[in-house]
Design a protein around this nucleic acid. Structure first.
Length: 482
RNA sequence: CGGGGCGUGGCCCAGCCUGGUAGGGCGCUUGGUUUGGGACCAAGAGGCCGGCGGUUCGAAUCCGCCCGCCCCGACCA
């Protein structure tokens, strides 16, 4: 009964998750549509969220020895086509610049869909000796891949991301880097975004165009579909050969370098929205929430305005050195503010009214608490309590997501069972698989599911292929994909 | 790119069938009373009805084409 009126404005998450998703993005002011289909404006609140994510991820890149740089937006077609698999994979999605002002260009320029060709070109100039290796560079930028069907954050034509590009002396070094960065992503997504992921290797058909091996972290979204949340590619010497990246080794021999690339995009913002949100709107993990604590002042009948302001300032300044805290002094009424900040997913609300003033306390409410329990907390020791509650919210969100995934991951041993799961609850399916691309295509045709990855931590296949009965090569994680 | 739906002040929508010169709710502005789960009163501002063309004395309304958005499918971080 309480907020029927308000709830009507947002569809129930479990009843219409597509509408819920796009509506919550609009209402929480994360993003808005641009005039060109597939492009979006990331609004200040959404961008603050992304900035918090990038800061935490960037720190991990720095800690693993990488440096940031910036490479150009456009590249000549002749560069893009140097690696055959690469160009074939990206051709359908590339946007082209063909004119400058009124003059046609003699060679059309591709808007980067990714920057392997760009980095490769420069690396061939910069790398001469084994002493130049490893070369460990990352860039934060946007890329363009033309999309047929788009969705804010989860699938936009232009998206923000980072792409790391590294070059190494030996294959082992390259593989090690690939796995190191995959682990960086896992740690980042699980610890900061509170989203559990499965680490795995992509099948041949899902591999990055031009890669020897693609590794991925896969998250499960509430509608039972999988989201590739980050990828790390071992590129072998494919790009080194295509772009002539060579060095003189210790033994005097000239050799091709081994390269890697790895990326994480604004798509993960979509995952955060989807995984944690509820019927009242966003729920943001405290580590990345633009506002971690919102203070709502409440004027009473016998309002002592100066005393209220003084108390809010006191609470605010006690918390602000350590937390991202804001006080909402707008002239909306308290109920309106409660709903508004819940929509925006702020992890902790502190109410401060006449009763609290008298008792020298605040009333604390956690966003992840469906009951909206109002907990009185004395001013003394507030900082420690808030720290503990934020940690608790972070942990609770991860546990909730972990439970959902566990409840929706099914070990399947027959084609019939496979079909039933995909027609019903969907989710992750673990099944023995022969590894054959044709078999994979058949599974996709008949169930909509694809091989998300071959999980790194599950044992090899125990039995024959669940689908075709031929000898099982590996245990694969299947799901419908975003 | 196929199938379906929808385009009317900032937002949600009525009006269209049966043509006659645009209306409601929310929001916004100003003033006042309010403030512990989306307050109330009063006075205001704001729209060439997605675009182009056609029919007509007259088009938001009828016809054609185009564009955009949403949902569902094939391709993708």
């Amino acid at each position: 009964m309480e907020d029927k009126e308000f709830a009507k404005e947002l569809p129930k998450k479990h009843e219409d998750i597509s509408r819920w998703y796009t509506d919550v993005i609009a209402k929480a002011e994360l993003a808005d549509y641009w005039l060109v289909r597939g492009f979006m404006v990331i609004r200040p609140y959404g961008y603050a969220l992304w900035e918090n994510m990038t800061a935490l991820l960037d720190a991990r890149f720095k800690a693993t020895g990488h440096k940031n740089a910036y490479f150009p937006l456009l590249l000549p077609e002749s560069l893009l086509v140097k690696e055959a698999q690469h160009v074939e994979g990206f051709a359908p999605q590339v946007a082209w610049v063909t004119e400058a002002g009124t003059e046609p260009l003699e060679e059309r320029l591709a808007v980067r869909p990714t920057s392997e060709a760009i980095f490769g070109t420069m690396y061939s100039k910069w790398i001469q000796s084994w002493r130049d290796l490893p070369m460990l560079i990352n860039q934060w930028c946007s890329v363009v891949r033309w999309e047929k069907r788009t969705l804010p954050f989860l699938r936009t034509t232009e998206f923000l991301w980072q792409e790391g590009h590294t070059a190494h002396r030996t294959e082992e070094d390259g593989v090690e880097e690939t796995m190191r960065m995959l682990e960086v992503y896992r740690d980042f997504v699980e610890a900061e975004l509170a989203i559990p992921v499965v680490k795995g290797r992509k099948s041949e058909s899902e591999k990055f165009p031009g890669a020897v091996d693609t590794y991925t972290i896969e998250a499960l979204l509430p509608d039972g579909r999988a989201l590739q949340s980050a990828t790390s590619h071992h590129l072998g010497q494919n790009f080194a050969r295509a772009f002539n990246i060579t060095f003189q080794d210790l033994d005097g021999e000239r050799r091709h370098v081994w390269t890697t690339s790895w990326g994480l995009s604004t798509r993960t913002v979509g995952a955060v929205i989807m995984v944690h949100g509820d019927d009242s709107g966003l729920i943001l993990p405290p580590r990345i929430a633009p506002v971690q604590v919102i203070i709502v002042p409440i004027h009473g009948k016998d309002a002592d305005e100066p005393a209220l302001r003084e108390a809010v300032d006191k609470v605010s300044s006690a918390l602000s050195p350590r937390f991202r805290v804001e006080a909402d002094w707008s002239d909306k009424r308290p109920g309106w503010k409660f709903n508004e900040w819940e929509m925006r997913g702020v992890p902790i609300r502190l109410e401060l009214g006449p009763r609290d003033l008298r008792a020298r306390q605040v009333t604390l409410v956690r966003r992840d608490d469906l009951e909206r329990k109002k907990q009185p907390v004395p001013w003394d020791g507030l900082e420690a309590r808030v720290a503990a509650e934020l940690e608790a919210v972070q942990g609770a969100l991860f546990q909730r997501a972990l439970q959902f995934r566990a409840a929706n991951t099914r070990r399947v041993t027959s084609g019939e069972e496979f079909r039933r799961v995909m027609e019903g609850p969907r989710g992750f399916i673990l099944a023995d698989w022969c590894g054959d691309a044709a078999c994979e295509a058949r599974i996709k045709d008949e169930t909509g599911a694809t091989v998300r990855c071959l999980p790194l931590d599950t044992e090899a296949a125990k039995g024959p292929c669940t689908w075709c009965g031929r000898p099982g090569q590996a245990q694969a994680l299947f799901a419908r994909a975003y």
